[in-house]
Design a protein around this nucleic acid. Structure first.
Lengths: 216, 216, 216, 216
DNA sequence: AATGAATGAGAATTCATTCAT
DNA sequence: CATGAATGAATTCTCATTCAT
């Protein structure tokens, strides 16, 4: 049993190694244009040996996706834990997740554009994760509505809209043409979403100032 | 000269024919996985003859993109012309463009996931069109702010956010998991965006009812 | 009949036009790498129309070869006519033909490297012309031997060797690496060949000076 | 290190294998008309696997050229070593190299007609080898001139002329029309070249008889 | 476990030639 | 005579995956 665990952990390690190597090239060339030889070279594992840890090239795609998604979802969970106030939670989530999209720009763009290359089974798993995430977001909004701080109907749709909005940075080639800083975008996003949830302007101003004060 | 025009129009026709044929398969298999043989077969043009009308496979990708983009932008222009009131214009734009994304779901998803395969020159042209479109959107919002019906800072960022939001339907695999109708999504979108621009709930309700009344 | 002649002459004209156009590109790209489209464009004749004047691409190759060969052979005949003295004739032939190879460098290299692409029938015709030319050269040498000015056995072999030697300039990429002028090469060739035919050094010196004097 | 050597030697072996296979078809069809499939089949290596040992089709052309050239240059070196007398050296060189051209007829014709297909880098390497070879030849002639056995000016040009002359057999389709044996051609060549270097007839006769006596 | 040589199907593109106008 | 659109076979080269060592 213990032996078995060791082997499994070794597998995970190797898979991570492959993921990291592959991602270096995926960023630049995309999934299809990256050959297994390149992945082998970039991850420092022999070409043949790769196939001890994955079955198909597609598996790597899935591993990469899972990795990035999990990082996003984990961050969401952390944010929600830090407060009990729905508005604070929401602001924190937007701030942190959008911050992550600044860092993971290439990875996220890659994932969005290559999800279609996944086969049924993998696709389902990724979509299931996403659905669960949106559900969690929906709960947050429902709570806010119940508490009377958010205003709106059909919180499931609202959750979907907001979650989608969070990925604006990687999905539109922002950095290439920006005359605005990342922080300006982040601020505008928070304001727009809060307003979209019916929170009055003054309250938003207040929140933002609070935050600014904390920072200094 | 007249001769020349005939030739050019014939070229365009053929290119359209190729586009339409190619798109049939692109939808299903994506750009890379679609072979030129398949495109030839699907468009009813001999394989070799394709190359009279395009130079590279990539050209087809560009033509498809351009075609879809232009349809969106044209629709935007039409909407803006139909009224002078910024709120009416905005509601009309959202309604019509999102409506188009319902129709062009596959095309738009395809475009978003394959833009990266365009080479520099084509990419620039596509991005230029997009930039121009966002600018036009920005003007609409600026006018609303000047007239005091919209509220918000940095209209360029707001325009970007809204434009992005409009592509939610094709970019998230909505249809696959929907428990909500397209119309419900559309309504939610309009409300969210109008609220995001600081329009009071009552005014929104009013607008929506007006519209509903007109329809009947 | 007269009509027929006109047609034939028109054909020849067009074929020349094609030859000249084709050669412009053959020089640079070689036979295989030159497409019929390029030949059509370079000769100012429509692609389809080309096939009224030739049957296959190969025909053009033959026409070009024939044209160049004839120019060389004609020059030979002229040289021989200008004197009755075998030495004078030989010197004149070498001077003029090598001079021509300076001018026709690209054409001759092209011919030598592409003769293999000719089919049987054309090949035979080209080789027949060559054989006849070597025969004529052989006669010249035989006459010199009979008159006691040339010394050597097997004049057929000697003729072959000399004829081959005359093509040194185009066949070795001379111009690219020359530290010697074309004239120096020509002089060296004449001296070497005359010596090879057993003409004493002093006589050669004499001939060369004569020529130099004439020139001034 | 030793491992590395093994791999390299294996590479060379495979490359030789490819060369030999390719040459079988190149002889008959020329470079352009020979497909990679045919080369794979003829060399007994899988089509895809070919590309482990070469990068482009052109590489094979280079390898073939290099191989033939080296055989010629090596033979030259051997000949020069066997004697200290310039005349003996020269006669030996002509005899041996022309002998080789009898054997390598197809290969040499192939090389001459296909050198143009080499790209810049390879071309330079081939030309560099050739230049070096002609230089060595020039040294031989210079020595003879210094010792007073050869007579002539501009030994560099003479070397070029003689070296060129040595390739007469493969470059003119000799075998197809020969009424003379290879030996007769060889004899005529030696006589012509020696005469061209100003060696008196009697001395040549002497040399040739010597050789003939040795042979028996 | 680890290696990289081997495989051959399949990709985009080009070409000489024909044919309807 | 003249045109150039149309054809589809043939080309080089790449790739994921397997397999012997």
């Amino acid at each position: 049993m213990i032996e078995n665990d060791k082997i499994k952990s070794r597998r995970r390690e190797r898979q991570q190694q492959i993921c990291r190597g592959a991602m270096k090239i995926f960023r630049v060339k995309g999934f299809h244009a990256t050959s297994m030889r390149e992945i082998a070279a970039a991850s420092g594992i022999g070409l043949g040996n790769l196939y001890h840890y994955i079955r198909k090239k597609e598996d790597i795609l899935f591993l990469v996706q899972k990795d990035v998604m999990d990082r996003l979802y984990d961050r969401f969970d952390e944010c929600v834990k830090q407060s009990k106030d729905p508005v604070d939670q929401l602001v924190s989530v937007i701030r942190e997740l959008v911050g992550l999209t600044f860092t993971l720009k290439e990875e996220m763009l890659f994932i969005y554009t290559e999800t279609k290359s996944l086969d049924r089974k993998y696709m389902r798993e990724i979509l299931a994760g996403e659905t669960q995430f949106v559900k969690a977001f929906e709960s947050l909004i429902r709570k806010g509505i119940r508490q009377g701080v958010f205003h709106g109907e059909k919180p499931d749709l609202i959750a979907n809209i907001i979650v989608f909005t969070l990925s604006i940075y990687p999905l539109r080639g922002w950095s290439t043409r920006r005359r605005r800083s990342n922080d300006e975008l982040l601020d505008a996003l928070i304001r727009f979403v809060l307003k979209g949830l019916g929170i009055p302007d003054e309250a938003i101003q207040h929140k933002m100032k609070q935050r600014a004060r904390k920072k200094t």
